[in-house]
Simulated scan of single mutants.
Amino acid sequence: MRRVADRRLVRARKPLSARKLRKSEKKAAKPAARTRPNLSTRRASFVVRRPVLVLVVAVAGLGALALPATKLEPGPPGEGTMGASGGPPRFR
Rank of each mutant, 00 (worst) to 15 (best):
F91N: 11
F91C: 12
V52T: 08
G86W: 07
V10F: 00
T81P: 13
L39D: 02
L21Q: 12
K26I: 09
P76G: 13
L72H: 07
L72S: 02
K26W: 09
R2I: 12
K20G: 00
M82N: 10
R13I: 13
T41Q: 01
S24A: 13
A29F: 05
A5Q: 14
V4R: 09
R49M: 02
P76D: 13
R19H: 02
R13G: 12
V4D: 06
G61N: 08
A5T: 14
L55V: 05
R11C: 00
D6S: 13
A29N: 10
V48S: 05
L53R: 09
A28R: 14
L9D: 11
E79I: 15
V10I: 07
V52P: 06
S17K: 10
R49N: 04
R43K: 03
P51T: 03
R2T: 13
A5Y: 11
V54F: 07
M82S: 15
R34H: 10
K27R: 08
K30Y: 08
P31H: 01
G86C: 10
R8T: 06
S40E: 05
T41Y: 02
R13F: 13
L62W: 04
R22G: 02
R90K: 15
L67A: 10
P77D: 10
A5D: 13
R7P: 00
S24G: 03
R19P: 03
K23L: 11
L67S: 04
V57T: 03
V56A: 09
D6E: 14
V54L: 01
K20Q: 15
T41F: 01
R22W: 00
A5L: 15
P15E: 13
K26R: 14
A64D: 07
R7D: 12
V4M: 03
V59P: 04
P74D: 03
S45T: 02
M1P: 09
R50T: 02
K23C: 02
G87A: 15
A33R: 07
A44E: 01
P76M: 13
K23N: 07
